[in-house]
Simulated assay, not measured.
Amino acid sequence: MDKEAAMAEGHKPLKLLYIEDDQRAATEILAMAAERGDHLVWESEGATGLRRAGMEPFDVIILDRMLGDTDGISLLLRLRDSGVGTPVLMLSALGRSTDRAEGLDAGADDYLAKPYEAQELFARVKALRRRASGREHSAVLLYGAFECHVKSRTAFRQNKHLALSPREFELFRYFVENAGETVTREMLLRDVWNMDFDPQTNVVDVNIGRLRRKLEDGFATPALETIYGTGYRLLTGK
């Protein structure tokens, strides 16, 4: 699809950050982005990519898992720890389910194994932008004693701030969005980790355990109810 055709179909240009040390791969993606009318910023080193991500807003960050000066997992953790909440699509030659689970658990919003078609990459990028835009419809989500501040990515229980990691915040927001309903493990894998398969790891259980401790620490009543054999349900927290 060339730039004129993309505009005719109502394509809204994307502003993308691409962190990739392979110049050949970067050249291909840069060319396709230009054809589509997207603005793509390429950084060949993780350190400069990290700085750029913190300096200006992007719709999506495309991050290669294996970089010359660092590994993508470490860089992603640093991005999330620094407060960068931009959706991240991780690219990697490591395509096993455990590799995908590791990338998604580190804070990636999607994971694409190499080799891949450029058209699929941009389709996934557009889906990430749509999903991120759709989640900003309400600035504050309320349920019982819980508050979920979407734009500032902060959480409270009975007006007490809860120090959540980026992944814990995504889980918390999902529970608030589905307040009072039973949330299954499959729903969490699909909607929070963006997995359409079971990675056969305890990634969900581990993160639920961490979130539960932070939601309940210092309070007399539980926050999450385990529905054995089914999933979990957020309680009012009162």
Rank of each mutant, 00 (worst) to 15 (best):
Asp69Gly: 08
Lys3Ala: 13
Asp38Arg: 03
Gly72Pro: 02
Ala118Gln: 09
Tyr232Cys: 09
Leu112Trp: 09
Leu211His: 01
Thr184Arg: 00
Pro13Thr: 05
Ala53Leu: 05
Lys214Trp: 08
Arg124Phe: 06
Thr98Tyr: 02
Gly231Lys: 01
Gln158Leu: 15
Arg131Gly: 02
Asp21His: 12
Asp205Ile: 10
Trp193Ala: 02
Ser74Arg: 03
Phe169Ile: 06
Ala123Pro: 07
Tyr232Ile: 00
Ala47Leu: 15
Glu186Arg: 12
Gly231Cys: 06
Phe175Arg: 06
Met90Arg: 02
Gln158Asp: 15
Arg153Asn: 08
Thr86Asn: 10
Arg213Pro: 00
Phe169Gln: 02
Val206Phe: 12
Gly209Arg: 06
Asp217Pro: 00
Asp71Asn: 15
Leu211Glu: 00
Glu186Val: 09
Asn194Pro: 01
Ala113Lys: 12
Pro57His: 06
Phe172Ile: 05
Arg52Glu: 15
Met32Tyr: 11
Leu215Ile: 02
Arg185Cys: 04
Asp71Ala: 04
Arg131Lys: 13
Ile19Asn: 07
Leu77Val: 14
Val204Gly: 08
Glu56Ser: 12
Ile19His: 12
Met187Leu: 10
Leu14Lys: 06
Val60Glu: 05
Leu171His: 02
Leu17Asp: 05
Glu28Gln: 12
Tyr111Gly: 01
Lys151Ala: 11
Asn159Leu: 10
Leu121Thr: 10
Glu4Leu: 15
Gly218Arg: 07
Phe197Gln: 15
Arg124His: 11
Asp205Arg: 00
Glu35Arg: 15
Asn207Leu: 00
Leu211Pro: 03
Lys214Gly: 10
Glu35Ser: 10
Arg80Lys: 13
Phe58Val: 14
Val41Gly: 04
Phe197Arg: 13
Leu14Cys: 10
Asp81Leu: 14
Glu177Asn: 03
Asp21Cys: 14
Ser74Pro: 00
Asp21Tyr: 11
